[in-house]
Nucleic acid binder design. Structure first.
Lengths: 201, 201
DNA sequence: TCCTTTGCATTGCATATGCAATGTAAAGAT
DNA sequence: ATCTTTACATTGCATATGCAATGCAAAGGA
């Protein structure tokens, strides 16, 4: 046989090319041949590593979200050991907002996959699982940030996550400048975490 | 000639079918023939009313957002004359969250178009225009709701809109129950509009 | 040394796609 | 009555798609 090859690595490379194609021309432009061309290989090679286009899509989606998660973790790690919970929350949420071209690319792909998932229950289930994880993590941090029990951590986490994701969408499709998105996010986080309990009751 | 026909109406019918196909199988499944079949007409007829697929997509998107806007206006109108600004805001934002199957269909399509727009500047420009309108409207209502100038209406409007849209996305692709989405939205609106000024400064 | 396995390339096929071209029948104009 | 316009339908074509089938050379084991 020819030089032994790391299957997983090759699959990653292919998935990479898929993501680049998707970032540029959307998921509809993703075809075996386009992906192969982007990767500088033949369509046959792509077929060798993925039994079907669907499998390739799944793998690429997993790769993308894995990569995103890593970015988020890195940002949180940058805060040093024992960071303040609201700094952690801030770092996590900011990761959603695309602030340069490469982040826009990633976010475009993420958005495309959200839409992709919305008509495919299997895919949606995977996304849901990841989201649940992030949501729980955020809720835990919120609990730490506000030791008073004046807020429901789950609801708050949902709201904050939705805000961050919604801002991302609006940066991409509604031409919202990312600075404005960051302002809005900052505002929302502050409002959520620094509001004194029982304001009017 | 055969019975004179309302062009606009026919185009609407075709667009309708397009939206139904998109709601069920995503935008990638939208083709002249699929749309035609869904509409119960021939592909030639579709071609007769739209010079190209792209034109059809544009028209369908406009139809969808027009329909959505109508729904939102109706909800606001239901509040009676001179409604409280925060009721107006609430009504507008709630319209984003899909709460039944037909609303889920609409929202799926909306999400698909967001993604579609994110790789097509022309389309994005149209979306941006509509969004700007809604954003301004919301900002105005926020100004009414909070006569104190402790919040920046534009930023607040952006944050609230993003939250609503993000919640919609999460209901569709992350299996968030719509009740939870409504809770989070309510929470966020209350927090935004009913927080006393200068809490800690 | 042979022979099998592995990694990839090529070819081909059935099907789908957007769209141009052309046909045709009905309704109105002259 | 004829002629033209309108509203579709049909056909066909170039191209793209997913995928199966097959080829084939290099690396290792026997």
């Amino acid at each position: 046989m020819p030089k032994r090859v790391d299957h997983h690595e090759r699959r990653q490379q292919v998935a990479d090319s898929l993501l680049r194609v998707a970032a540029r021309q959307g998921l509809e432009a993703v075809s075996l041949r386009h992906v192969a061309e982007e990767a500088g290989v033949t369509a046959g090679m792509v077929q060798h590593y993925f039994p079907s286009k669907e499998a390739m899509m799944h793998f690429a989606m997993a790769t993308a979200s894995e990569r995103y998660e890593r970015r988020m973790r890195a940002r949180i790690a940058e805060l040093g050991s024992e960071p303040a919970p609201n700094e952690v929350i801030r770092a996590a949420l900011i990761s959603f907002v695309p602030c340069d071209e490469s982040e826009r690319d990633e976010a475009r792909v993420a958005l495309a996959f959200q839409s992709y998932a919305s008509t495919r229950p299997t895919v949606a289930a995977e996304l849901a699982a990841q989201n649940a994880q992030l949501s729980e993590f955020l809720a835990a941090q919120i609990l730490l940030a506000r030791r008073d029990d004046t807020v429901d951590p789950a609801t708050t986490a949902t709201a904050l996550l939705a805000t961050a994701e919604g801002l991302a969408v609006r940066v991409l499709s509604a031409k919202l400048p990312h600075e404005a998105a960051l302002d809005a996010l900052t505002y929302q986080i502050t409002l959520t975490l620094d509001t004194p309990p029982d304001p009017d009751a």
